[in-house]
Nucleic acid binder design. Structure first.
Length: 266
DNA sequence: TATAGTGTTATCGG
DNA sequence: ACCGATAACACTAT
């Protein structure tokens, strides 16, 4: 589920509910999610300190700590952050999860921080493709898709023969666009997903940039990429929300891709 | 039971 | 070395 909008919401959850609280217990025993750190290494680095700031670039989050290393968090394909207070109150990123409501059950907990007053931050992730690591390297990520300028976007989606969708998904070129957001952006801009980037016009790139910014703003505001117009129609028989043409689908850039054959023909 | 899947990365070929 | 395509990863829901 998590693309940039969901990750931004998760970051805001941490900012609102997990900063400046002394960490008294850490569960880092899931050695796949916490790799390459051996069990206990992340725990030892965080015990007794506190998170001070929550940052995000693309789909990667990281938290500064008062006295320890930086804590990197990535939600992978199915991760979610939930903060539960001692009285049972939950703060989470909304109901976008495909694996049902959490309902205080905390199934699939892969990592947790317990605070001095009994509150707990949990990373829930059925598929265990999320990652927790100390001092993550963020430098290889491209500019954040939520704030990228038109000029930098044009550079990122300028040269090369890759299908434009593949480039939008390339986290080194720009960071934060996932499969569903990419389809919605291309749909808004009226661009065929398979079009090579060097065949785009400057006008195409301007429309794509505006579509990207608008789609992200709407998705963050409305609760995730599932609220975008095209996303519920991404299924066999789904219709274009604009002209009601039956959408077509194929694999582009290695991912299942839906588009309107009428207004995204070229 | 078989399959698809919202992300990342190692590996392969051009 | 660069660029793009593909498989693998772990696991659940359909």
């Amino acid at each position: 589920m998590p693309e940039l909008p969901e990750v931004e919401t998760a970051r805001a959850v941490i900012e609102r509910a997990a900063l400046k609280r002394r960490i008294v217990a850490v569960d880092d025993t899931d050695s796949y999610v916490c790799r390459p750190h051996p069990p206990g290494q992340i725990r030892d680095a965080l015990l007794g300190t506190e998170l001070t700031e929550a940052h995000r670039r693309g789909k990667t989050m990281w938290c500064d700590t008062a006295t320890g290393p930086v804590l990197g968090l990535h939600l992978g394909m199915s991760g979610k952050i939930v903060v539960t207070e001692a009285d049972g109150t939950e703060v989470d990123g909304g109901d976008y999860w495909a694996y049902g409501r959490t309902n205080g059950e905390h199934r699939f907990c892969r990592f947790s921080l317990t605070f001095a007053d009994g509150g707990v931050l949990r990373l829930l992730d059925p598929r265990r493709l999320a990652r927790v690591r100390l001092d993550p390297n963020v430098d290889d990520l491209g500019p954040d898709a939520a704030t990228i300028t038109a000029a930098r976007f044009a550079r990122a989606v300028g040269a090369g023969r890759a299908p434009v969708k593949a480039r939008l998904l390339d986290q080194h070129a720009l960071a934060g666009v996932g499969n569903l957001l990419a389809d919605d952006v291309l749909w808004r801009a009226g661009v065929n997903p398979a079009r090579p980037v060097d065949a785009l016009t400057d006008a195409d790139r301007r429309r794509l940039h505006r579509a990207l910014r608008a789609a992200i703003d709407e998705a963050v505001r409305d609760g995730g990429v599932h609220t975008l117009p095209l996303v519920p129609e991404r299924r066999p028989g789904g219709q274009c929300p604009r002209d009601h043409t039956i959408l077509v689908h194929a694999t582009v850039g290695g991912r299942t891709t839906y588009w309107c054959p009428k207004h995204q023909a070229g």
